[in-house]
């Protein structure tokens, strides 16, 4: 009796296993991975897209970071990669090695905000040079007071807050301000959790810090954003939806991207998803606290996508102060 039961259980298990192997890939799954900066936008698009398709297509989104995402993408494990910076030379090489071709599509702006305490009454605006004096590696142990940066500022200890070295925000800020990625002084309070930075600056009159614009927008009552002097026009520009979109808030705003694998485009659901992404990005981006591109940008991106414009417009390195309309028309390379 017992033996019969065991035997029939084993038979059922074997059949079920066979079933799995035979009916392996009938599901429509779109696999996305990559940057945590782009994640909220992709999540919003995935949420809406799945609702619109009534569950017929499954979308998964992971957070492996831009670098980790490209690793999987270039091995052919994902269909789309979220990226807060362009693909780098060494990543392009890996992609080439595995025969992965891709379309590069900007989807939104990511803007950094330099913030100070609301009680700070000596800062009206700052220049990139002043920020550099404060944050460059040479400032470590030397620039310790506000007056060390500018003699007109108070002779009081400077408390600095910034994201940790694993963050894309840190990479971009150091590149845009100090001129070299990851080149920064090390003696500041670093946290991967931006909410910690918000608290730090909100409770210290002599504090300064930087992080993504979305965190400033959510905490406007506790913080003050520093207008940054635009090098071209020499006018101080406050970060806002309008100034990021029209390109005057520079150099602390950059486009962020999705990379779509060419071979994934043979799947109609991926094509449909990307089209949906670009058509709805303007609305969804704002909802999650990011700055959208202009309509003309999205139209041009759609054109690039439909025309299968393969490769990156950057040539394998990061670039500060890039203009999206110009980028989209550049010649691109794989």
């Amino acid at each position: 009796m017992f033996k019969k039961f065991v035997l029939s259980m084993i038979a059922i298990i074997i059949m079920a296993t066979v079933n799995v192997v035979v009916a392996g890939a009938d599901d429509k799954i779109i696999k996305i991975d990559g940057s945590s900066t782009v994640y909220p936008i992709t999540e919003a698009v995935a949420e809406e897209f799945q609702k619109a398709k009534r569950g017929a297509v499954k979308v998964t989104v992971g957070i492996s970071g831009t670098g980790g995402g490209f690793k999987k993408f270039c091995r052919g494990e994902t269909d789309i990669s979220d990226a807060s910076r362009p693909i780098l030379k060494k990543e392009m090489d890996v992609c080439k090695e595995h025969g992965i071709k891709y379309v590069e599509l900007p989807v939104a702006f990511d803007a950094l905000t330099v913030v100070i305490n609301p009680k700070n009454d000596w800062i009206r605006s700052m220049t990139v040079e002043e920020l550099k004096k404060m944050w460059e590696p040479a400032a470590q142990g030397k620039v310790m007071k506000w007056s060390d940066v500018n003699p007109k500022w108070p002779n009081h200890k400077l408390s600095m807050f910034g994201p940790g070295a694993d963050s894309g925000t840190f990479d971009y800020f150091t590149d845009a301000i100090n001129g070299k990625e990851k080149a920064s002084r090390g003696d500041f309070t670093a946290s991967e959790d931006d909410n910690v930075l918000v608290q730090g600056v909100a409770h210290d009159k002599y504090a300064i810090g930087y992080f993504g614009l979305a965190y400033y927008v959510e905490n406007k009552d506790k913080l003050k954003a520093v207008p940054i002097v635009n090098k071209g026009t020499t006018k101080a520009v406050s970060p806002s939806l309008a100034t990021v979109m029209d390109g005057t808030y520079q150099p602390l705003a950059r486009p962020i991207f999705i990379y779509v694998a060419e071979k994934a485009l043979t799947k109609p659901e991926v094509k449909e998803f990307v089209t949906y992404y670009l058509s709805n990005a303007a609305k969804l981006t704002k909802q999650v606290g990011y700055v959208p591109l202009s309509k003309a940008h999205y139209d041009q991106a759609m054109k690039n996508f439909n025309g299968k414009k393969l490769g990156t417009g950057f040539g394998g390195k990061n670039e500060v102060g890039v203009r999206v309309d110009e980028l989209l028309k550049r010649e691109s390379h794989l």
């Binding site: 991975d33 994640y39 992709t42 999540e43 995935a46 949420e47 799945q50 569950g55 499954k58 979308v59 998964t60 989104v61 992971g62 957070i63």
Partner: peptide
């Protein structure tokens, strides 16, 4: 091992 963050199914 690659658990994901957004799964709506």
């Amino acid at each position: 091992v690659g658990a994901l963050t957004f799964i709506a199914f």
